[in-house]
Design a protein around this nucleic acid. Structure first.
Lengths: 177, 177
DNA sequence: CCGCTCATGTAACTGGTTACATGATTTA
DNA sequence: TAAATCATGTAACCAGTTACATGAGCGG
């Protein structure tokens, strides 16, 4: 029982939500995600799905639409077990930690001459504000749906980005730039 | 002018902060970081430093301690330019986005039978609370130093983790588990 | 003297990305 | 009818990890 990568486990989750589902639709979940760790590239998803099938965690069948060939994947019992094992696993520092690309940049902001620091923070604030807007739009959409958890998950991202934005203003203030 | 990876740019930043610095000390920055995107493995740092040297962004010299051989790296002018170019670059969705390993798990929590959802949230809350404690300890330490930005950066992580923790309690409440 | 940390490295691997190829279907 | 999107895939590449090897110095 080889352990699964984070992406593989996410894909099991997506399958659980959307099954039966085509690889392309799985891809789109990642392509359209506000998170950027995974690109949702075909080169990631198609081989991954076949690999999961080889391990018996997912099953597939041909599902052509009219003339076009198509393939649909679903979770097997073992697949659902795998998903649950993930959710039952202990959570440690890896799960609690986060990486904030803006925060690391701020760590080194004094490498910039003073007059460039204001514009730096402007760029950062704008990026976060725009992200906040995107998430709000997304949450509005989700709120009209019937999937509560989807909405709540969106709100999670919103809270986090807002916290980063507030912190950024605190930093500007503390450094008076 | 090949573009640099995020890790390479971070390493330039670390060099800017600590130069002249040994590869081992650069590693420790990542090894001891609360963030877990990079392991700080020797296999990452040593070849990377040589690569940066090959590109003329960093310079090195022998710096043995008594009997032991050692090597010290510093930024070159081009290296500092590279660091600044990073900080001057526009920030978009990639920089504003975040990945929260707990949030993705929450997305799929209903794949767990109801009675297991409480313990799931317990584990998540504990992991975040512990992380909060670690960050607080770190910030206390930094506060006694003279590096304001280091302290502020620590606070950034604290704000983010606290936001995630608050959100988690909101979710528990909303799902009443 | 044993084990730990300091310190420097290499080799094999792997989990992805980028870029390409192909063709059907929809939309402007 | 041209361009965009749907849909499926492959091949080459690459950044970083894991695991290993080596040896010096230090604390119990």
């Amino acid at each position: 029982m080889e352990r699964l990568s984070e992406l593989e486990q996410c894909v099991l989750g997506v399958l659980w939500l959307l099954q039966p589902v085509t690889p392309y639709r799985v891809r789109k979940v990642f392509l359209e995600s506000r998170s950027t760790i995974w690109s949702g590239s075909a080169g990631a998803i198609y081989p991954l799905l076949r690999k999961l099938e080889g391990r018996g965690l997912v099953g597939s069948r041909d599902a052509p639409t009219g003339d076009r060939p198509g393939r649909e994947y679903s979770l097997t019992g073992a697949g659902k077990d795998g998903l649950r094992r993930w959710l039952r696993a202990p959570m440690g520092q890896a799960e609690a930690s986060d990486y904030d690309p803006i925060r690391v940049r701020v760590r080194f902001v004094e490498a910039l001459p003073p007059r460039e620091r204001g514009p730096f923070f402007d760029r950062a604030e704008r990026a976060l504000t725009e992200q906040l807007g995107r998430i709000e739009a997304m949450c509005d959409e989700y709120e009209r749906g019937d999937d509560v958890v989807q909405f709540l998950t969106g709100r999670g991202g919103w809270h986090t980005v807002r916290a980063r934005l507030h912190w950024l203003r605190e930093v500007r203030d503390a450094l008076s730039v």
